[in-house]
């Protein structure tokens, strides 16, 4: 059995061998284009190295990789969530429909309305179910009056597959729902502001298999209207729901390919080792 140091050394050796991303990182008509993305924490520590990746329209792209490989960090670059971390620095180009999302003129709050996010742990506001969903539209002034707001709330809850379960108790606190329902409430809250891209950071890791299946079914439906990037530790989940899969390793993007290819015949040795469980 390798001890921790030997294992870390082994990984560094592997990492040095990753010179470029294999597979198909580029698309013709991409929603998101990222080029030469590097992320540094607290000055010296580099978390992401030279990531070039296109994210397609109406696709679900899954990002997989071992803990600390940079997949969540990369996801958080896509709506500038790393801005909230002190001393984090992002370099490179990140273009949403050709628009530089790190441009100084761009208000991150407006960006986050276009690129929404769902987190690992359901985090509804300590407000009613209705107010949770209405929060974003109110903030961005998306509804002219109460009936329009009602409509947005109902439609968002419907899209998130939650409306029928909560329609009689919209004024009860969102925190009173079950874990799976809370997560769907968070998804409803995200889609209430009509984003174009939804980022999901391990959205089902705190849920039971039934709630997970409901969310996965929902992701498939949401794909018709949104682009979805999902970070997941469950390889079976990536295999089930995504069209493309990106494998990260020690901050580098090792391979991006059609999910079918990645799970039957991956191109890179590291991807093969990870998805077959020959890692670490």
């Amino acid at each position: 059995m390798l001890d921790a140091t030997a294992r870390a050394e082994g990984r560094e050796e592997f990492s040095a061998a990753i010179t470029h991303t294999v597979g198909k990182p580029f698309l013709e008509d991409a929603k998101f284009k990222t080029r030469d993305v590097n992320v540094f924490y607290a000055g010296a520590k580099q978390a992401i190295f030279d990531v070039d990746l296109d994210i397609g329209r109406n696709e679900v792209i899954a990002m997989i990789g071992p803990s600390g490989c940079g997949k969540s960090t990369f996801l958080r670059c896509l709506n500038r969530m790393n801005d909230t971390i002190q001393d984090a620095k992002v370099t490179g180009q990140l273009l949403l429909d050709g628009m530089d999302i790190y441009s100084k003129e761009l208000d991150p709050v407006l960006l986050r309305a276009r690129v929404g996010m769902v987190f690992q742990k359901p985090n509804p506001f300590p407000k009613s179910i209705y107010d949770n969903v209405a929060y974003g539209p109110r903030l961005h002034g998306l509804a002219a009056n109460r009936s329009e707001l009602d409509e947005i709330v109902e439609e968002s809850l419907r899209k998130a597959g939650l409306f029928n379960e909560v329609k009689d108790r919209l004024n009860s606190p969102g925190t009173g729902l079950s874990g799976g329902q809370q997560q769907r409430l968070c998804i409803a809250r995200t889609i209430a502001v009509s984003p174009e891209v939804i980022l999901m950071d391990e959205p089902t890791s705190a849920l039971d298999p039934i709630a997970t299946a409901t969310i996965e079914e929902l992701i498939e439906e949401l794909r018709q209207s949104f682009t979805i990037c999902i970070v997941t530790h469950s390889m079976q989940q990536a295999a089930r729901i995504s069209q493309r899969t990106a494998y990260f390793h020690l901050g580098k993007l090792v391979e991006v390919n059609d999910t079918n290819t990645v799970f039957t015949n991956p191109s890179h040795q590291l991807t093969e080792n990870y998805i077959t469980g020959r890692f670490g």
């Binding site: 079976q236 295999a239 990645v262 799970f263 039957t264 015949n265």
Partner: peptide, 9 residues
Amino acid sequence: RQPAAIDLR
């Protein structure tokens, strides 16, 4: 085990 890649093959 839900084998993948070479194990699946």
